[in-house]
Amino acid sequence: MSQATSSNSEEISNEDRLLELAKAKPEGISNENIKQAIPNLPLEELALIINKCLKNGSLELFKTKDKLLYKYKDSSKKPAIRGADNEEKVVFKIIEEAGNKGIWIRDIRFKSNLNMTQLNKVLKSLETKKIIKAVKSVSASKKKVYMLYDLEADSSVTGGAWYQDQDFESEFVDVLSQQCCRYLRQKWEDANSMGGGPLLARNRSYATAQDVHKFISELGISKISLSVDDIESILYTVVLDNNAERIVATNGSFLYRAVNKFMQTPGIVTTTCGVCPIASRCADTGFINPKVCNYFTEWLE
């Protein structure tokens, strides 16, 4: 803990008692609390101890309703920042506040009011000390965000399970989506073949995300472990492809079920014109016209 050198052993014990007190009350201690707990402590000495604690960061000062509160702060994070200058401390604090979402260099500059070159220097020094790290965000590949070294980046920054080195793994998503769809369809077919009326068949064909998650995990197609939430978002793409429908169950979670479409493929897309990429440029005169249309010719052969 505090390694402050002091000649007075009593002072150390007072300091320890104060810190113990602060630890016990995470919402903070006031001057009255201290007085009650350590009644025989002179005010000057208390002020001295508190100042020392504030300085080495084991206590923090808060002000609520004209009342001063001291809060204990875990100094296990501290050692890293020791020996840093004021700018580094400020920047460190800003980055620390950003948590695992990280913070963009521009925002740091605005918050800290440091100029660019100075900030760059500070960031570099913090990075070499392995106090902070830079993480590339998936939303914009050029954008780097800074966060504390030992933090795991948030999924909004790394993109979660679907990203590998900022690249969206679309094949992986496609395969998963197909498998989810297959699972739902299989379940639907099983339910139908079991008989017992349409209502029963329908109710049997519903699957929760947990069921699908289990199925996917057992398939072993994924090297990384997927969460149920990941599966939910995959299932949503199946719903968007109109291969399944999603309803809300009584407990608030979603249920999924394979469904058929109402419509067959419309007649217009069975023609070449229906899917023709240059249909808008086609007319009865000019180079693109139905008489010489290559798409037609190919299709008619």
Binding site: I268, T271, C273, G274, A279, C282, D284, N289, P290, K291, C293, F296
Partner: peptide
């Protein structure tokens, strides 16, 4: 889409005549 359908009809008929 309806316009596209008319265009398709026109194209089909023109091609037939052709």
């Amino acid at each position: 889409t309806l316009e596209l359908c008319y265009k398709t009809l026109f194209n089909i008929m023109t091609r037939k005549n052709h």
